[in-house]
Each structure stands twice: as C-alpha cells, then as structure tokens.
C-alpha cells in the first residue's frame, strides 16, 4: 500500500489537564482533499495547527511522507524535533488563515515575495515576477502595489492564498478561510480554491462551514466531535445518509440555520 501523505498516529493533545485529542488517528492520501466539519471546539483548528507546528503535540506522532514531524534523528538517536528539522518539514506545508494575517506594512507584492526571498533564497526580481503571476492567477494583477489595508476581505484572502502558494507547498491547510468574509465575497475566494483543486495536485486539509462547498470539493469528509472522528466518508454519502445520530443532528442544525 502506498504510504499516506499525512498520518496522525495516536496523537494526543492536552489543554491544561483536559485532553482534547487522545489517541487520534487519521491518514490522508497524496492529493486527497479532506474536509473537517464539526461543532465549535471539536478540535478542527487544533488539528491543522498541530500539523503546521503552530501547536505542539503531547503524545503520538504526525508523519508527512512517512517522516516524523515532531522527532528527528541526531547522531543516530531519535530526539525531539529541533528548529532545523521543523523548518524542513514545514517546507511541505502551507496554511491559509481565517483572518488572513497579511503583513500590514508590506505591499501586496512584497507580502507574496517576502518568504520566497528570505526562505527559498530567490532573487528579488524572480520573486516579484513569480508573485505577479500568482496575483494574476487569483485575479488581482492590478493590486500589486496596494497595501492590505486597501483591500476588501475577499481580496485579502486571495492574497493570503497567493502568499501561501508562493512557497510551493504540497499540502494546503485551509482553516475557515471564508468565515471572516461578508457573504457576497465568499465565492470569489472559494472559486480560487475550486480552480486549484481542478488544475493542481495539492493535498488539502480544510475546515469549512460552507457545506455546499465541502460537498462539491472533497474526496472525503470527516465529522469531528470532541477530538474524535465520529464519522467519515464520501461527501455525497455523509451529507445524504449520515449514520451517526450526532452527525445527523449537527447537519440538521446546519440546514435549519
């Protein structure tokens, strides 16, 4: 069997002495698009953040391409991952944030080119050229010299996506990337993701409350509750015939609102 692109193995995570995850397992195949749904506080963001190394883990391991994220080999001993190892692993990952987190003091173009220059060591010219291409791809070619403060929420998020893509990750982590947006701006952002899913080969792990979007884009949907996957399956199956009562009531509450 092919090794999974991402594997959560027996992962545990505590906040205080309260376990959020306790022996959590999840495999994601290369190029698979997996959507996490679930009630607030169920741990969806934490899952993505542990993978992005924004949150540590308290037990178990996360593997990317079969390689452990939180441990590494040093002098033929397995030790806690150091920054060097984490930086190597992070290079495969890209995250888009709910609140964009653009750098407010940099132009749109610089926001996108910053990390390629500083991390990938691209020349300024090359990085700006590539950034301009990405801006065109997300439909903002004319905003290169604008500042984040000059943009609408939807435009900011499209810059956020371009900034993430500029680092050429193979895995995209998208945590409620449209939930800070006015409803009329949601689709311009989702269209960019649809486009990516249709034309590129990213592995995607996303959290969304846009159920119609989850349904159309996902290969697999996981319903998470209290740090456990209660139910998972193909979207058409999970949305039309949810098996677990908790999934049913969660989806029902969505239909009502």
């Amino acid at each position: 069997m092919k090794q999974p692109k991402i594997r959560f193995q027996d992962v545990s995570k505590f906040f205080g002495d309260q376990p959020l995850f306790d022996g959590f397992n999840l495999d994601i195949t290369e190029q698979e698009i997996v959507t996490l749904i679930g009630p607030s506080g169920s741990g969806k963001s934490t899952l993505l953040r542990m993978l992005m190394t924004l949150e540590t883990i308290d037990g178990g391991e996360i593997f990317i391409d079969g390689e452990p994220l939180w441990h590494c080999e040093r002098r033929s001993k397995t030790v806690k991952a150091d920054e060097k190892h984490l930086r190597q692993m992070r290079a495969k990952l890209g995250m888009v944030f709910q609140h964009f987190n653009l750098f407010p003091h940099m132009s749109v173009l610089r926001n996108i080119a910053e990390a390629p220059i500083r991390v990938l060591g691209k020349s300024r010219e090359q990085a700006y050229n590539d950034a301009a291409c990405l801006l065109e791809q997300v439909g903002l070619a004319d905003k290169a010299d604008a500042f984040p403060a000059d943009l609408s929420g939807g435009q900011k998020q499209r810059v956020g996506i371009a900034r993430t893509l500029a680092m050429q990750p193979s895995v995209l982590l998208l945590d409620e990337i449209t939930s800070a947006l006015d409803p009329e701006l949601v689709d311009e952002v989702l269209d960019v993701i649809r486009q990516l899913a249709a034309t590129q080969r990213y592995t995607m792990l996303l959290v969304t409350h846009e159920m119609y979007f989850a349904r159309e884009i996902s290969d697999r949907v996981c319903f998470l509750d209290q740090g456990r996957i209660v139910e998972e399956g193909r979207p058409e199956q999970l949305f039309s015939q949810p098996q677990s009562p908790r999934t049913q009531s969660f989806l029902a509450s969505f239909l009502r609102s």
Partner: peptide, 30 residues
C-alpha cells in the same frame, strides 16, 4: 503585534531573525 503575524511568519517558514526584523519590529516600532 497581532499573534496571527507570528503564526503567518512561522507558516511561511521565516527564520527567527526575519520574523523579528521583517515582520515584528517594523510593526512594533511603528
């Protein structure tokens, strides 16, 4: 400086040095 700025810097794999000098200091000093 907003916590999200540190997180974005980390997700973009910026080094500690560039996180401070390119992202945090300009905003903090401002």
């Amino acid at each position: 400086v907003d916590h999200g700025q540190w997180e974005a810097a980390r997700a973009l794999n910026l080094s500690r040095f560039h996180t401070y000098f390119d992202v945090v200091f300009p905003q903090a000093l401002r």
